[in-house]
């Protein structure tokens, strides 16, 4: 019995909110907490992750007919590690200051569960177009999640957004938001917010369905 597999469009829209890698799947938390102290490093990390995710998904999808079951994780890891090295060297060459700020978190993209799980769930089974859409959707979802966190932390912690000062000079900087406790609190509270909104919408949809039927 074959199950109809999600189309490219479904894969794309799934990754943004319904199966958001951070808020729904809870994958890739390490960079989320680490680089979201400000928008610039967060967006650089999102771009690097997007590059690796898209490249890995496309390459794995091209190879999907050749993968042996017990060696596939090895192939995934080899591919991902290669693209991460390329991304890391590129950042070091052209964005040196940002590369120093991101530090070890760019190579840590290798063990970012999002990428391996997308290779396993989608790229190794579906065509290049679908894998590409999936990667783009997940990357967008990841970037949105990082942006939501970084916005809160940067505005409260430094009074700026993308380095542009927004709050008046009299506002005291909540430095704790830039440090690690702030990361944990912000993610926990935003997660609760997303859950709450999701539940309210599900309740409203159920209510509407009952009224109609």
């Amino acid at each position: 019995m074959s199950k109809t597999e999600p189309t490219a469009l479904e894969r794309f829209t799934n990754g943004i909110l319904p199966e958001n890698p951070i808020y729904r799947q809870f994958l890739g938390m390490c960079p989320t907490l680490a680089v979201t102290g400000a928008m610039k490093p967060a967006m650089t990390m999102a771009a690097a992750t997007a590059f690796v995710l898209v490249s890995a998904n496309v390459i794995i999808s091209l190879m999907r007919g050749l993968l042996r079951p017990h060696l596939r994780i090895l192939v995934f890891t080899l591919t991902i590690a290669t693209f991460v090295t390329i991304a890391d060297r590129f950042l070091e060459a052209y964005f040196y200051a940002m590369s120093k700020e991101l530090g070890p978190y760019v190579p840590l993209i290798i063990v970012n569960c999002i990428i391996i799980s997308r290779c396993e769930i989608c790229a190794s089974k579906q065509s290049v177009g679908v894998a590409l859409a999936d990667a783009l959707g997940m990357s967008l979802g990841f970037a949105l999640a990082l942006a939501s966190l970084a916005t809160v932390r940067e505005i409260l912690g430094s009074g700026s957004w993308f380095g542009v000062t927004l709050l008046p000079a009299g506002w005291p900087h909540w430095t704790i938001m830039i440090l690690s406790p702030g990361a944990f609190f912000t993610l926990g509270l935003l997660l609760a917010l997303v859950n709450w909104v999701g539940r309210r919408r599900a309740e409203a949809a159920a209510l509407r369905a009952r009224i109609k039927g």
């Binding site: 190879m63 050749l66 993968l67 042996r68 060696l71 090895l74 192939v75 080899l78 591919t79």
Partner: peptide, 8 residues
């Protein structure tokens, strides 16, 4: 079985 890994 490992030819793919070696080529890669």
């Amino acid at each position: 079985q490992a030819w793919l890994v070696i080529v890669l």
